[in-house]
Amino acid sequence: MSVTLNAHQFGRLLERTAGHIADEFIPALHGVRLEADDTFLYAIASDRYTLAVARYRHHGLDGEPFARTLPARALASLRRWAADQPGNTPVTVSLAENRLRFTAPQGEVGVDDGQEFFGWRGVLRGVIDQVPAEDGTTSPFPALDTRLLARWTDADHYLRLRVTADRQGALLVGEDFIGAQMPVRTRHDGFGTGLADDLDQVRTLWDGALAGAPAAAMPDSLPAARRTPHDAARTVPETAKGLLRQTLSSTHDLIEESSTSPTAVAAHASAGVTAWMAFRYL
């Protein structure tokens, strides 16, 4: 039971979902779920208020589909291990003796899997299939916690957003990514009491500031921001900075691992040398 993908895409799966992990007080959600079927490797994380799912089309499933939870305690070291591999390095994710194993040509990591996970597919199906209220008296106007909105930063540069009702989850969709955010359902201790409940209240509250201004779109003369793919640096200095950081990080790890694992030493040395060569090339 194994799948193979490159190190860059494996790291991206973890990066896009790690921010949605629940804290240690919810053990069943304190980690990232990895699931593999015949086509994709999925990474899933949730803190009950947000749910994020990223996927990548792998290079083939060897054996039966599998699903295991990667505990949060192992996530930092695994992300560092993936970052130390050259981006095109094949990484095999396998399940053996109830342990998740991550294997690359220059090293291997084994992790005991964590808690059982909830039925995330059904939750997202419910968010996708939900429809607005049929009475047509109100427009969808849910209150969203902005502290949770920040968790979508690593998902993609652009996400599509769909809302259907005040008390239904908002749907967020990107490239090979889907997620949901639950609305704020209650107000307590004065929190949120100043929030407008509907668009008519918004118009009333802001009428003085906006009165007399005709409705208009954003001016076409404003320049659009240049966006590059998430796996490409924006500038040469930014790339150089990242390569130097990788060189220092790998050198530190090389010293730390020098007395424990020859395989890890070789992996850190190779990653550091590769980063330094690329920096010198620039």
Rank of each mutant, 00 (worst) to 15 (best):
Met1Phe: 06
Met1Gly: 10
Ser2His: 07
Val3Phe: 06
Leu5Ile: 02
Leu5Asp: 02
Ala7Asn: 12
Gln9Trp: 06
Leu13Gln: 11
Leu14Gly: 13
Glu15His: 12
Ala18Arg: 03
Asp23Cys: 06
Asp23Trp: 07
Asp23Thr: 07
Glu24Asp: 08
Glu24Tyr: 04
Pro27Arg: 15
Ala28Asp: 14
Ala28Glu: 15
Ala28Pro: 00
Leu29Arg: 08
Leu29Trp: 01
Glu35His: 01
Asp37Asn: 14
Tyr42Leu: 08
Tyr42Val: 00
Ser46Gln: 08
Arg48Leu: 00
Arg48Cys: 05
Ala54Ile: 07
His58Asn: 15
His58Val: 15
Gly60Ile: 08
Leu61Cys: 07
Asp62Ser: 07
Asp62Arg: 04
Gly63Met: 07
Glu64Gln: 14
Glu64Trp: 13
Pro65Lys: 08
Ala67Cys: 06
Arg68Phe: 08
Pro71Met: 01
Ala72Tyr: 04
Ala76Thr: 14
Leu78Asn: 13
Arg79Gly: 02
Gln85Leu: 09
Pro86Glu: 05
Asn88Leu: 05
Thr89Gln: 03
Thr89Ala: 03
Val91Thr: 12
Thr92Val: 11
Ser94Leu: 09
Leu100Pro: 01
Leu100Met: 10
Ala104Gln: 08
Pro105Phe: 03
Pro105Arg: 04
Pro105Val: 06
Gln106Cys: 02
Gly107Arg: 15
Gly107Trp: 14
Val109Met: 14
Val111Glu: 06
Gly114Phe: 03
Phe117Arg: 01
Arg121Gly: 14
Val123Leu: 12
Leu124Cys: 09
Arg125Trp: 00
Arg125Gly: 00
Gln130Ile: 14
Pro132Arg: 04
Gly136Trp: 03
Thr138Arg: 12
Phe141Leu: 12
Pro142Trp: 09
Arg151Phe: 03
Thr153Tyr: 01
Thr153Ser: 10
Thr153Met: 10
Ala155Pro: 06
Tyr158Arg: 09
Arg160Ala: 08
Arg160His: 02
Arg162Cys: 07
Thr164Ser: 03
Asp166Gly: 05
Arg167Pro: 14
Ala170Arg: 08
Leu171Phe: 07
Asp176Gly: 14
Ala180Lys: 01
Met182Val: 12
Pro183Val: 09
Val184Trp: 02
Arg185Lys: 00
Phe191Thr: 15
Gly194Asp: 02
Leu195Ser: 10
Ala196Gly: 02
Asp200Ala: 15
Asp200Thr: 11
Asp200Met: 12
Gln201Met: 05
Val202Ala: 06
Val202Glu: 05
Arg203Asn: 11
Thr204Arg: 04
Leu205Val: 11
Leu205Lys: 15
Trp206Pro: 08
Leu210Glu: 14
Leu210Tyr: 11
Ala211Glu: 15
Met218Glu: 02
Pro219Ile: 01
Ser221Trp: 15
Leu222Asp: 10
Leu222Pro: 04
Leu222Arg: 10
Leu222Thr: 05
Leu222Ile: 02
Ala224Tyr: 15
Ala224Gly: 09
Ala225Val: 13
Thr228Trp: 00
Asp231Ile: 03
Arg234Gly: 07
Thr235Asn: 01
Glu238Trp: 10
Lys241Gln: 15
Leu243Thr: 00
Thr247Lys: 06
Leu248Ile: 10
Ser250Arg: 13
Ser250Val: 00
His252Pro: 05
His252Trp: 09
Asp253Cys: 04
Glu256Arg: 11
Glu257His: 10
Glu257Pro: 04
Ser258Phe: 13
Thr260Tyr: 14
Pro262Ala: 02
Ala266Thr: 13
Ala269Lys: 02
Gly272Trp: 04
Thr274Gln: 12
Met277Glu: 08
Ala278Ser: 06
Phe279Glu: 03
Phe279Ala: 05
Phe279His: 05
